[in-house]
Amino acid sequence: MIEGYRFVDHVLPRMLPSLAFVALASLAWLVPLRSAGSHGWILLGGVAVMTLAAWGTSTVLVRRLPRFSRRAATAFLAVYATMPVAVPLLQLAVDGAVTPPGGRVVGLLGFVIFFAAVFVSTLLATTYGLGTLLRRAVRHSVFDLRNSVHLLGRALPALLFVTLFLFFTGELWQAMNRLAWWRVVLVIVLFAAITVLAAAARLRDEIGRVEQDLSRPTLAAACRGTPLAGVRFEQLAPEGQLPAMPLTPRQERNLLLMLASRQLMQAAVVGLTLFTFFLALGVLVVTPETAEQWIGGKPQMSALFPVIPVAMLRNATLLAAFGSMYFAVTSMTDADHRQRFFAPIIDEVEHVLTVHAVYLAVRERTPAAAHRPGIG
Protein backbone atom coordinates (compact mmCIF):
# COMPACT_ATOMS: atom_id res chain seq x y z
CA MET A 1 0.00 0.00 0.00
CA ILE A 2 3.05 2.31 -0.17
CA GLU A 3 2.59 4.87 -2.92
CA GLY A 4 5.33 4.68 -5.54
CA TYR A 5 6.34 1.19 -4.44
CA ARG A 6 9.09 0.31 -6.93
CA PHE A 7 11.51 -2.55 -7.44
CA VAL A 8 14.82 -0.72 -6.95
CA ASP A 9 13.67 1.64 -4.19
CA HIS A 10 11.63 -0.73 -2.04
CA VAL A 11 11.58 -4.37 -3.19
CA LEU A 12 15.24 -5.12 -3.90
CA PRO A 13 16.57 -3.88 -0.52
CA ARG A 14 14.08 -6.16 1.27
CA MET A 15 15.15 -9.06 -0.95
CA LEU A 16 18.83 -8.65 -0.07
CA PRO A 17 18.95 -10.79 3.13
CA SER A 18 17.18 -13.76 1.53
CA LEU A 19 19.18 -13.66 -1.70
CA ALA A 20 22.47 -13.25 0.17
CA PHE A 21 21.57 -16.23 2.35
CA VAL A 22 20.82 -18.45 -0.66
CA ALA A 23 23.90 -17.30 -2.58
CA LEU A 24 26.30 -18.04 0.28
CA ALA A 25 24.51 -21.23 1.33
CA SER A 26 25.06 -22.57 -2.19
CA LEU A 27 28.79 -22.64 -1.39
CA ALA A 28 28.07 -25.69 0.77
CA TRP A 29 28.00 -27.57 -2.54
CA LEU A 30 31.78 -27.13 -2.65
CA VAL A 31 32.38 -29.05 0.58
CA PRO A 32 33.21 -32.70 -0.24
CA LEU A 33 32.05 -34.39 2.99
CA ARG A 34 32.92 -37.95 1.98
CA SER A 35 36.41 -37.19 0.72
CA ALA A 36 37.31 -34.64 3.39
CA GLY A 37 36.10 -36.67 6.35
CA SER A 38 35.88 -34.71 9.59
CA HIS A 39 37.45 -31.67 7.93
CA GLY A 40 34.46 -31.55 5.58
CA TRP A 41 32.09 -31.03 8.49
CA ILE A 42 34.34 -28.23 9.78
CA LEU A 43 34.26 -26.56 6.36
CA LEU A 44 30.50 -27.00 6.18
CA GLY A 45 30.15 -25.42 9.61
CA GLY A 46 32.28 -22.52 8.46
CA VAL A 47 30.05 -22.01 5.44
CA ALA A 48 26.98 -22.08 7.70
CA VAL A 49 28.46 -19.52 10.10
CA MET A 50 29.48 -17.27 7.19
CA THR A 51 26.01 -17.57 5.67
CA LEU A 52 24.23 -16.67 8.91
CA ALA A 53 26.63 -13.76 9.50
CA ALA A 54 25.97 -12.43 5.99
CA TRP A 55 22.23 -12.76 6.49
CA GLY A 56 22.36 -10.85 9.79
CA THR A 57 24.64 -8.16 8.36
CA SER A 58 22.46 -7.63 5.30
CA THR A 59 19.36 -7.43 7.49
CA VAL A 60 20.92 -4.66 9.60
CA LEU A 61 22.12 -2.91 6.43
CA VAL A 62 18.63 -2.93 4.95
CA ARG A 63 17.14 -1.46 8.14
CA ARG A 64 19.68 1.38 8.20
CA LEU A 65 19.79 1.91 4.44
CA PRO A 66 16.26 1.14 3.22
CA ARG A 67 16.97 2.23 -0.37
CA PHE A 68 19.73 1.46 -2.87
CA SER A 69 21.19 3.65 -5.53
CA ARG A 70 20.87 2.53 -9.14
CA ARG A 71 24.56 1.64 -9.24
CA ALA A 72 24.39 -0.45 -6.06
CA ALA A 73 21.27 -2.26 -7.29
CA THR A 74 22.91 -3.05 -10.63
CA ALA A 75 26.04 -4.34 -8.92
CA PHE A 76 24.05 -6.56 -6.55
CA LEU A 77 21.95 -8.03 -9.37
CA ALA A 78 25.10 -8.65 -11.44
CA VAL A 79 26.77 -10.52 -8.56
CA TYR A 80 23.69 -12.66 -7.99
CA ALA A 81 23.37 -13.40 -11.73
CA THR A 82 26.93 -14.78 -11.78
CA MET A 83 26.31 -17.25 -8.94
CA PRO A 84 24.96 -20.11 -11.14
CA VAL A 85 28.26 -20.03 -13.06
CA ALA A 86 30.53 -19.04 -10.17
CA VAL A 87 29.63 -22.07 -8.02
CA PRO A 88 30.56 -24.68 -10.68
CA LEU A 89 33.76 -22.76 -11.48
CA LEU A 90 34.70 -22.70 -7.80
CA GLN A 91 34.04 -26.41 -7.61
CA LEU A 92 36.31 -26.89 -10.61
CA ALA A 93 39.05 -24.98 -8.81
CA VAL A 94 38.57 -26.95 -5.57
CA ASP A 95 37.98 -30.49 -6.83
CA GLY A 96 39.53 -30.29 -10.27
CA ALA A 97 36.23 -31.37 -11.87
CA VAL A 98 32.67 -30.22 -12.00
CA THR A 99 30.47 -33.11 -10.90
CA PRO A 100 26.88 -31.94 -10.57
CA PRO A 101 24.13 -34.54 -10.82
CA GLY A 102 23.23 -35.39 -14.41
CA GLY A 103 26.46 -34.17 -15.96
CA ARG A 104 27.96 -30.76 -16.56
CA VAL A 105 25.36 -29.29 -18.89
CA VAL A 106 22.35 -30.56 -16.94
CA GLY A 107 23.97 -29.56 -13.65
CA LEU A 108 24.73 -26.02 -14.86
CA LEU A 109 21.17 -25.67 -16.13
CA GLY A 110 19.93 -26.89 -12.75
CA PHE A 111 21.95 -24.16 -11.00
CA VAL A 112 20.47 -21.52 -13.32
CA ILE A 113 16.90 -22.75 -12.77
CA PHE A 114 17.42 -22.93 -9.00
CA PHE A 115 18.76 -19.38 -8.64
CA ALA A 116 16.12 -18.02 -11.03
CA ALA A 117 13.34 -19.75 -9.10
CA VAL A 118 14.67 -18.38 -5.80
CA PHE A 119 14.82 -14.87 -7.25
CA VAL A 120 11.27 -14.98 -8.67
CA SER A 121 9.75 -16.50 -5.53
CA THR A 122 11.56 -13.99 -3.30
CA LEU A 123 10.44 -11.16 -5.59
CA LEU A 124 6.78 -12.18 -5.38
CA ALA A 125 6.92 -12.83 -1.63
CA THR A 126 8.55 -9.44 -0.99
CA THR A 127 6.36 -7.46 -3.38
CA TYR A 128 3.12 -8.70 -1.88
CA GLY A 129 4.34 -9.23 1.70
CA LEU A 130 3.45 -12.93 1.67
CA GLY A 131 5.52 -13.66 4.78
CA THR A 132 3.72 -11.01 6.83
CA LEU A 133 0.33 -12.09 5.48
CA LEU A 134 1.06 -15.70 6.39
CA ARG A 135 2.17 -14.79 9.92
CA ARG A 136 -0.97 -12.71 10.44
CA ALA A 137 -3.18 -15.49 9.08
CA VAL A 138 -1.53 -18.05 11.37
CA ARG A 139 -1.88 -15.71 14.35
CA HIS A 140 -5.57 -15.26 13.64
CA SER A 141 -6.01 -19.00 13.13
CA VAL A 142 -4.47 -19.56 16.57
CA PHE A 143 -7.02 -17.10 17.92
CA ASP A 144 -9.75 -19.07 16.13
CA LEU A 145 -8.46 -22.27 17.72
CA ARG A 146 -8.61 -20.66 21.17
CA ASN A 147 -12.19 -19.69 20.43
CA SER A 148 -12.91 -22.93 18.60
CA VAL A 149 -15.93 -23.75 20.77
CA HIS A 150 -17.65 -20.56 19.64
CA LEU A 151 -16.49 -20.91 16.03
CA LEU A 152 -17.25 -24.59 15.58
CA GLY A 153 -20.39 -24.56 17.70
CA ARG A 154 -22.01 -22.22 15.20
CA ALA A 155 -20.39 -23.50 12.01
CA LEU A 156 -20.55 -27.30 12.40
CA PRO A 157 -24.32 -27.90 12.59
CA ALA A 158 -24.98 -26.34 9.19
CA LEU A 159 -21.92 -28.01 7.66
CA LEU A 160 -22.88 -31.45 8.97
CA PHE A 161 -26.40 -30.99 7.63
CA VAL A 162 -24.88 -30.47 4.16
CA THR A 163 -22.20 -33.18 4.25
CA LEU A 164 -23.20 -35.89 6.74
CA PHE A 165 -25.45 -37.94 4.47
CA LEU A 166 -22.87 -37.88 1.67
CA PHE A 167 -20.45 -39.72 3.96
CA PHE A 168 -22.69 -42.82 3.93
CA THR A 169 -23.07 -42.94 0.13
CA GLY A 170 -21.76 -46.18 -1.34
CA GLU A 171 -21.01 -44.61 -4.74
CA LEU A 172 -18.77 -42.03 -3.06
CA TRP A 173 -16.87 -44.77 -1.23
CA GLN A 174 -16.35 -46.63 -4.51
CA ALA A 175 -15.02 -43.48 -6.19
CA MET A 176 -12.71 -42.66 -3.27
CA ASN A 177 -11.34 -46.21 -3.23
CA ARG A 178 -10.17 -45.78 -6.85
CA LEU A 179 -9.22 -42.09 -6.74
CA ALA A 180 -5.51 -41.35 -6.44
CA TRP A 181 -4.30 -38.96 -3.76
CA TRP A 182 -2.98 -36.45 -6.27
CA ARG A 183 -6.49 -36.13 -7.71
CA VAL A 184 -7.85 -35.51 -4.21
CA VAL A 185 -5.26 -32.75 -3.79
CA LEU A 186 -6.39 -31.17 -7.08
CA VAL A 187 -10.00 -31.20 -5.86
CA ILE A 188 -8.89 -29.42 -2.66
CA VAL A 189 -7.04 -26.83 -4.78
CA LEU A 190 -10.22 -26.35 -6.83
CA PHE A 191 -12.24 -25.70 -3.67
CA ALA A 192 -9.58 -23.22 -2.48
CA ALA A 193 -9.72 -21.43 -5.85
CA ILE A 194 -13.49 -21.06 -5.53
CA THR A 195 -12.97 -19.53 -2.08
CA VAL A 196 -10.45 -17.04 -3.48
CA LEU A 197 -12.80 -16.07 -6.33
CA ALA A 198 -15.63 -15.49 -3.85
CA ALA A 199 -13.29 -13.37 -1.70
CA ALA A 200 -12.28 -11.33 -4.77
CA ALA A 201 -15.91 -10.57 -5.63
CA ARG A 202 -16.69 -9.59 -2.03
CA LEU A 203 -13.56 -7.41 -1.81
CA ARG A 204 -14.61 -5.32 -4.82
CA ASP A 205 -17.98 -4.69 -3.18
CA GLU A 206 -16.32 -3.65 0.07
CA ILE A 207 -13.88 -1.30 -1.68
CA GLY A 208 -16.78 0.46 -3.39
CA ARG A 209 -18.67 0.77 -0.11
CA VAL A 210 -15.69 2.23 1.78
CA GLU A 211 -15.00 4.77 -0.98
CA GLN A 212 -18.53 6.11 -0.46
CA ASP A 213 -18.00 6.76 3.28
CA LEU A 214 -14.87 8.89 3.73
CA SER A 215 -16.41 11.49 6.02
CA ARG A 216 -14.41 13.31 8.69
CA PRO A 217 -15.65 11.21 11.64
CA THR A 218 -14.80 8.00 9.74
CA LEU A 219 -11.33 9.29 8.87
CA ALA A 220 -10.60 10.43 12.43
CA ALA A 221 -11.74 7.11 13.91
CA ALA A 222 -9.64 5.08 11.46
CA CYS A 223 -6.47 7.14 11.97
CA ARG A 224 -6.66 7.08 15.76
CA GLY A 225 -3.51 5.43 17.11
CA THR A 226 -1.60 5.80 13.80
CA PRO A 227 1.06 8.35 12.69
CA LEU A 228 -1.79 10.18 10.87
CA ALA A 229 -3.75 10.82 14.08
CA GLY A 230 -2.59 14.45 14.21
CA VAL A 231 -3.87 15.35 10.75
CA ARG A 232 -6.31 18.28 10.65
CA PHE A 233 -9.22 16.66 8.89
CA GLU A 234 -11.18 19.89 8.56
CA GLN A 235 -8.37 21.16 6.32
CA LEU A 236 -7.81 17.84 4.60
CA ALA A 237 -11.51 17.43 3.78
CA PRO A 238 -13.00 20.96 3.80
CA GLU A 239 -16.20 19.75 2.17
CA GLY A 240 -16.70 17.13 4.88
CA GLN A 241 -15.98 14.19 2.57
CA LEU A 242 -12.61 13.01 1.22
CA PRO A 243 -12.72 12.14 -2.49
CA ALA A 244 -12.29 8.46 -3.36
CA MET A 245 -8.72 7.32 -3.94
CA PRO A 246 -8.68 4.49 -6.49
CA LEU A 247 -6.34 1.59 -5.81
CA THR A 248 -3.83 0.26 -8.30
CA PRO A 249 -4.26 -3.33 -9.54
CA ARG A 250 -1.29 -4.44 -7.43
CA GLN A 251 -2.79 -2.91 -4.30
CA GLU A 252 -6.09 -4.67 -5.00
CA ARG A 253 -4.25 -7.96 -5.43
CA ASN A 254 -2.44 -7.39 -2.14
CA LEU A 255 -5.72 -6.78 -0.31
CA LEU A 256 -7.15 -9.88 -1.98
CA LEU A 257 -4.20 -11.92 -0.71
CA MET A 258 -4.81 -10.64 2.81
CA LEU A 259 -8.51 -11.44 2.63
CA ALA A 260 -8.00 -14.83 0.97
CA SER A 261 -5.28 -15.90 3.40
CA ARG A 262 -7.49 -15.09 6.39
CA GLN A 263 -10.47 -16.91 4.87
CA LEU A 264 -8.41 -19.96 3.90
CA MET A 265 -6.81 -20.25 7.33
CA GLN A 266 -10.18 -19.92 9.04
CA ALA A 267 -11.60 -22.53 6.66
CA ALA A 268 -8.62 -24.80 7.43
CA VAL A 269 -9.54 -24.75 11.14
CA VAL A 270 -13.08 -25.81 10.28
CA GLY A 271 -11.84 -28.38 7.75
CA LEU A 272 -9.49 -30.01 10.24
CA THR A 273 -12.34 -30.38 12.69
CA LEU A 274 -14.61 -31.85 10.02
CA PHE A 275 -11.91 -34.31 8.97
CA THR A 276 -11.44 -35.47 12.57
CA PHE A 277 -15.21 -35.82 13.03
CA PHE A 278 -15.73 -37.87 9.88
CA LEU A 279 -12.74 -40.07 10.66
CA ALA A 280 -14.04 -40.79 14.17
CA LEU A 281 -17.55 -41.37 12.81
CA GLY A 282 -16.24 -43.78 10.18
CA VAL A 283 -14.24 -45.78 12.70
CA LEU A 284 -17.26 -46.10 14.99
CA VAL A 285 -19.98 -46.76 12.42
CA VAL A 286 -18.45 -48.19 9.24
CA THR A 287 -17.26 -51.75 9.95
CA PRO A 288 -14.90 -53.55 7.55
CA GLU A 289 -17.83 -55.63 6.28
CA THR A 290 -19.87 -52.48 5.55
CA ALA A 291 -16.94 -50.84 3.80
CA GLU A 292 -16.45 -53.96 1.67
CA GLN A 293 -20.13 -54.00 0.73
CA TRP A 294 -20.11 -50.29 -0.26
CA ILE A 295 -16.89 -50.56 -2.22
CA GLY A 296 -17.84 -53.82 -3.92
CA GLY A 297 -14.66 -55.60 -2.94
CA LYS A 298 -11.98 -55.79 -0.32
CA PRO A 299 -11.06 -52.20 0.63
CA GLN A 300 -7.51 -50.96 0.32
CA MET A 301 -6.10 -50.27 3.79
CA SER A 302 -3.95 -47.29 4.70
CA ALA A 303 -0.22 -47.85 5.11
CA LEU A 304 0.01 -45.43 8.05
CA PHE A 305 -3.21 -46.61 9.75
CA PRO A 306 -3.70 -50.28 8.83
CA VAL A 307 -7.13 -50.47 10.49
CA ILE A 308 -8.56 -47.58 8.42
CA PRO A 309 -9.52 -48.00 4.74
CA VAL A 310 -7.97 -45.55 2.31
CA ALA A 311 -11.46 -44.77 1.00
CA MET A 312 -12.44 -43.53 4.46
CA LEU A 313 -9.45 -41.19 4.64
CA ARG A 314 -10.11 -39.80 1.15
CA ASN A 315 -13.82 -39.52 1.85
CA ALA A 316 -13.20 -37.58 5.06
CA THR A 317 -10.66 -35.37 3.29
CA LEU A 318 -12.99 -34.59 0.39
CA LEU A 319 -15.99 -33.80 2.59
CA ALA A 320 -13.85 -31.70 4.95
CA ALA A 321 -12.55 -29.68 1.99
CA PHE A 322 -16.06 -29.21 0.63
CA GLY A 323 -17.36 -28.19 4.06
CA SER A 324 -14.51 -25.69 4.45
CA MET A 325 -15.31 -24.11 1.09
CA TYR A 326 -19.00 -24.00 1.97
CA PHE A 327 -18.22 -22.33 5.30
CA ALA A 328 -15.87 -19.76 3.72
CA VAL A 329 -18.36 -18.80 1.01
CA THR A 330 -21.43 -18.66 3.28
CA SER A 331 -19.51 -16.59 5.84
CA MET A 332 -19.17 -13.93 3.14
CA THR A 333 -22.73 -14.10 1.79
CA ASP A 334 -25.10 -15.22 4.53
CA ALA A 335 -26.11 -12.30 6.79
CA ASP A 336 -25.83 -14.21 10.08
CA HIS A 337 -22.54 -15.94 9.20
CA ARG A 338 -21.13 -12.70 7.83
CA GLN A 339 -21.79 -10.86 11.08
CA ARG A 340 -20.17 -13.56 13.20
CA PHE A 341 -17.23 -14.80 11.08
CA PHE A 342 -16.51 -12.36 8.22
CA ALA A 343 -17.18 -8.94 9.74
CA PRO A 344 -13.91 -8.78 11.76
CA ILE A 345 -11.89 -9.39 8.60
CA ILE A 346 -13.83 -6.79 6.63
CA ASP A 347 -13.42 -4.27 9.48
CA GLU A 348 -9.66 -4.62 9.11
CA VAL A 349 -9.87 -4.13 5.33
CA GLU A 350 -12.03 -1.04 5.81
CA HIS A 351 -9.54 0.35 8.32
CA VAL A 352 -6.66 -0.16 5.88
CA LEU A 353 -8.54 1.47 3.00
CA THR A 354 -9.58 4.49 5.06
CA VAL A 355 -6.09 5.14 6.45
CA HIS A 356 -4.67 4.66 2.94
CA ALA A 357 -7.02 7.35 1.60
CA VAL A 358 -5.81 9.80 4.27
CA TYR A 359 -2.20 8.83 3.54
CA LEU A 360 -2.62 9.65 -0.17
CA ALA A 361 -4.40 12.91 0.58
CA VAL A 362 -1.59 14.01 2.90
CA ARG A 363 1.00 13.21 0.22
CA GLU A 364 -0.88 15.28 -2.35
CA ARG A 365 -1.20 18.30 -0.03
CA THR A 366 2.45 18.16 1.10
CA PRO A 367 4.58 16.96 -1.84
CA ALA A 368 7.83 17.46 0.08
CA ALA A 369 6.68 14.91 2.67
CA ALA A 370 6.50 12.24 0.02
CA HIS A 371 10.29 11.93 0.07
CA ARG A 372 10.61 11.48 3.83
CA PRO A 373 11.08 7.87 5.01
CA GLY A 374 8.17 8.10 7.44
CA ILE A 375 5.72 9.10 4.69
CA GLY A 376 7.04 7.53 1.48
Results as ranks from 00 to 15, higher is better:
residue 1 M to D: 10
residue 2 I to L: 08
residue 4 G to C: 02
residue 5 Y to M: 07
residue 5 Y to V: 09
residue 7 F to W: 03
residue 15 M to D: 06
residue 17 P to E: 02
residue 23 A to P: 00
residue 25 A to N: 03
residue 26 S to E: 04
residue 28 A to E: 04
residue 29 W to Q: 12
residue 33 L to P: 00
residue 33 L to T: 01
residue 34 R to W: 11
residue 36 A to F: 08
residue 51 T to A: 15
residue 54 A to V: 11
residue 55 W to L: 13
residue 62 V to F: 02
residue 64 R to L: 09
residue 64 R to M: 08
residue 67 R to A: 00
residue 70 R to Q: 09
residue 70 R to W: 06
residue 70 R to G: 15
residue 71 R to Q: 08
residue 72 A to D: 12
residue 73 A to T: 06
residue 77 L to M: 12
residue 82 T to A: 15
residue 83 M to H: 01
residue 85 V to T: 13
residue 89 L to S: 12
residue 90 L to Y: 09
residue 92 L to A: 08
residue 92 L to M: 09
residue 93 A to D: 00
residue 95 D to A: 13
residue 100 P to K: 02
residue 107 G to C: 03
residue 107 G to K: 03
residue 109 L to M: 07
residue 110 G to P: 00
residue 114 F to G: 14
residue 114 F to W: 05
residue 115 F to R: 02
residue 115 F to P: 01
residue 118 V to F: 10
residue 121 S to C: 07
residue 123 L to V: 07
residue 127 T to Q: 00
residue 133 L to C: 04
residue 135 R to D: 15
residue 138 V to A: 14
residue 138 V to H: 07
residue 141 S to Y: 07
residue 143 F to G: 15
residue 144 D to S: 13
residue 145 L to T: 09
residue 146 R to F: 01
residue 151 L to M: 10
residue 153 G to P: 00
residue 156 L to V: 14
residue 158 A to Q: 06
residue 160 L to G: 12
residue 161 F to S: 15
residue 166 L to T: 14
residue 169 T to K: 09
residue 172 L to E: 10
residue 172 L to W: 13
residue 174 Q to V: 00
residue 176 M to I: 04
residue 177 N to R: 02
residue 179 L to M: 15
residue 179 L to P: 01
residue 181 W to D: 15
residue 181 W to C: 08
residue 182 W to L: 10
residue 185 V to L: 15
residue 186 L to T: 14
residue 194 I to E: 11
residue 196 V to C: 01
residue 197 L to S: 12
residue 201 A to H: 09
residue 203 L to F: 11
residue 207 I to F: 05
residue 208 G to T: 07
residue 212 Q to T: 11
residue 213 D to S: 09
residue 213 D to F: 06
residue 215 S to Y: 03
residue 217 P to T: 06
residue 218 T to V: 13
residue 220 A to D: 06
residue 220 A to L: 06
residue 222 A to N: 04
residue 225 G to L: 02
residue 229 A to F: 00
residue 234 E to L: 08
residue 242 L to M: 03
residue 247 L to K: 01
residue 249 P to L: 01
residue 249 P to T: 05
residue 251 Q to L: 04
residue 254 N to A: 15
residue 256 L to Y: 01
residue 258 M to W: 07
residue 258 M to C: 12
residue 261 S to W: 12
residue 266 Q to K: 15
residue 269 V to S: 07
residue 270 V to I: 07
residue 271 G to W: 04
residue 276 T to F: 04
residue 280 A to R: 07
residue 282 G to M: 02
residue 283 V to F: 08
residue 285 V to L: 12
residue 286 V to G: 01
residue 294 W to Y: 11
residue 295 I to R: 03
residue 298 K to G: 13
residue 298 K to L: 11
residue 301 M to H: 07
residue 302 S to D: 13
residue 303 A to K: 07
residue 307 V to W: 06
residue 309 P to D: 03
residue 311 A to Q: 05
residue 311 A to S: 15
residue 314 R to V: 01
residue 316 A to H: 02
residue 320 A to Y: 00
residue 321 A to H: 01
residue 323 G to K: 03
residue 326 Y to N: 13
residue 334 D to N: 13
residue 340 R to L: 09
residue 340 R to Q: 14
residue 342 F to C: 13
residue 343 A to R: 15
residue 351 H to L: 10
residue 352 V to N: 07
residue 352 V to K: 08
residue 354 T to Q: 03
residue 358 V to P: 00
residue 360 L to T: 10
residue 361 A to Y: 02
residue 362 V to M: 08
residue 365 R to H: 10
residue 370 A to E: 11
residue 375 I to D: 10
